[in-house]
Computed example of a mutant assay.
Amino acid sequence: MNKAVKLVAVGAAFLFGATFAGNVTVQADSPRYDMVDVSNHNGQMTTPEFIDMRDAYGVKAVTTKISEGTTYHDWTAAGNIRAAQEAGLYINGYHYLRATTVAGAIAEADYAVAMAQADGLPVGAVLVADVEEPAQMAMGANMQAVVTAFENEVQIKGGFRTTAYTMGSHLEVTPYGEKSWIASYPFTPTSTQNWYATEHGWQFDSKATFRMSLGVFDVNQLYDNFFTADQAVIKKNPGDGATVWSKGGVWYTDKSFKHKANGIKKHMGSYWSFAYGKLIKSNWTNSWGMYYWSDGDGKLVQGKGTWKGYTWDFGTDGTYYVKNATPKSLNKLVEQLNK
């Protein structure tokens, strides 16, 4: 499901002072949220979203869809890789495999490697073969040679580590003796189940939700460090590069000035909010169901500040949203104060 981002701007002056550490929310009795996998169905993910997943849910790694077959390149991959790295998360990729022959698997592996390299997937990351096509399932153990060909080519051509992902009902399609990544969804996942504990990981839910993100997500419990190892650089702090460009007072996400900036973007080491090309200044932004404040220069703020006699706390944990009111009550309060 694609995400939609709602942006609302309502203005006034804001005064800032002391800082405050953010709260952490965790699930009580579910398997660990060690890794989340994302694709175009989740829309373009952002650094604040991944930071919130890291801090509030314990997410350590992200696996993003890179490609499918020999023609489809997931448009969210490059941005997801960059956002996950900026959030200090391990990043991996997956390719949806359609091949049922060795030759076809090699061709798809070459394409997946080229797209992963173009997207910036780091050497040493995992590039997974996603095996779930009905024709592949029907092949049973005969599919192992096809998956093995894909994996071998990925390692040779890309320098990526690799494994296979499939459903628990079709383990026989994964290479014999190899630890894999298995999906199987109990009616009520609990922390004591530990299904497929001899594999790299278990995808236990395909409808998980996160408080800063719209839609539903696949979440996974990991049993080893396969998805959290052998990456040369994990960026703990935001970089300082340009990601938006201005022309005639309008901001764009490309140097050709074709796509207007919309939503919260990281640019030159800070976060900024845009509404259809316009930089929001001294205003609120309602995004992902949370409220953010942009200062007079347009930067999202952290710390504590006062506005219309109220004290507001945006924390110092890199998530930037206001912490001392629920979105619903805050929405009502902001509307009242702006009358």
Rank of each mutant, 00 (worst) to 15 (best):
T47R: 15
T47W: 09
T47A: 13
T47L: 08
E49P: 09
E49V: 04
F50L: 06
I51E: 02
D52I: 12
M53I: 06
A56L: 13
A56D: 15
G58K: 13
V59D: 03
K60M: 04
K60H: 03
A61H: 04
T63V: 14
T64P: 06
K65T: 08
K65V: 07
K65D: 04
I66G: 04
I66T: 11
S67M: 13
G69L: 08
G69V: 11
G69F: 11
G69Y: 12
T70Q: 14
T71F: 08
Y72N: 11
Y72C: 05
H73Y: 12
W75Y: 15
T76W: 09
T76K: 01
A77K: 14
A77T: 10
G79W: 12
G79P: 01
N80M: 07
I81G: 02
R82W: 14
R82K: 15
A83T: 04
A83R: 05
A83K: 10
A83H: 11
A83D: 06
A84G: 11
A84D: 06
Q85G: 10
E86Q: 15
G88V: 11
G88H: 10
L89H: 10
Y90Q: 09
N92K: 05
G93F: 04
G93C: 07
Y94E: 07
Y94V: 01
H95S: 11
H95M: 11
H95F: 09
Y96K: 07
L97R: 00
R98T: 15
R98S: 14
R98W: 10
T100W: 12
T100R: 09
T101I: 09
T101P: 06
V102S: 04
A103R: 14
A103M: 06
A107L: 13
A109W: 08
A109Q: 00
A109L: 02
D110L: 09
D110C: 09
Y111C: 08
Y111R: 03
Y111W: 11
A112T: 03
V113F: 00
V113A: 05
M115Q: 13
Q117D: 12
D119G: 01
D119M: 04
D119R: 00
G120Q: 02
G120Y: 00
L121A: 01
P122I: 02
P122E: 10
G124T: 06
G124N: 02
G124P: 11
A125N: 00
V126D: 03
V126Q: 07
L127G: 02
A129R: 05
A129P: 02
V131Y: 04
V131T: 15
P134E: 12
P134C: 01
P134S: 13
A135V: 14
M137P: 06
M137Y: 12
A138P: 00
A138S: 14
M139I: 05
M139V: 10
M139A: 11
M139P: 01
N142P: 08
N142D: 15
M143V: 02
M143F: 10
Q144P: 02
Q144S: 07
Q144C: 04
V147S: 01
F150D: 01
F150M: 02
F150R: 05
N152G: 03
E153K: 07
E153P: 00
E153S: 03
V154H: 01
Q155W: 02
Q155P: 00
Q155D: 06
Q155N: 06
I156Q: 10
K157M: 01
